[in-house]
Design a protein around this nucleic acid. Structure first.
Lengths: 90, 90
DNA sequence: ACTATATTTCGATATATATCGAAATATAGA
DNA sequence: TCTATATTTCGATATATATCGAAATATAGT
């Protein structure tokens, strides 16, 4: 009759899953993510320099501080990694 | 150098995608969704009666009105359908 | 028609989120 | 070290969201 009650592990998984969904639930942030994704893929082929925050911001009409903030959230959700090199590289 | 600018179609897709993510971004709502999903699958096998709002609420400790509200959002995002039969059936 | 049960809507509230501009910090190159 | 550029942090604000309980509505069975 009843549907599965969740174990503690399941619950943690759900939390992470919800967090990932949340990270992608904002249109701007999804756009940032898409930009990072596409640019990264492209730059791997070409050995080009990889997308910087600034770079991304120029594709999306929004302030740098906001982009930076969204990047942090994507990082926290584990959807994006980044390394530094003068210009932060994704 | 630049990464693809998005067409109008792409933009609409992104909007829908973000909306779907948003619908699943809340832990409670994700739990509701999971319950619906699991219960529906089970009841298809058994020809049992399918999960009602009330039923779901008893699995999750939260008020009926809130569940109802979340169900509406899931419906709007197109992630869930429901039909009536005295007890609403999902 | 009446009653019990299921579900939705309403109005309120507390909390979270997205966004900005300014200030702070970091790095590269002269 | 000084400067220009890139990025992050801070503080403020406006908007959105989750949640509740109560009231309204719907349905089934008597």
């Amino acid at each position: 009759m009843q549907c599965k009650p969740k174990s503690k592990q399941d619950k943690e998984q759900m939390e992470r899953l919800a967090a990932a969904f949340k990270a992608l639930s904002n249109e701007t942030r999804l756009a940032v993510f898409e930009n990072v994704r596409l640019c990264s893929a492209q730059s791997m082929k070409n050995k080009n320099n990889r997308p910087s925050v600034c770079n991304i911001a120029s594709n999306i009409d929004i302030s740098l501080s906001t982009i930076s903030h969204h990047m942090k959230e994507l990082r926290h959700a584990g959807l994006v990694k980044c390394t530094r090199q003068g210009q932060t590289i994704l």
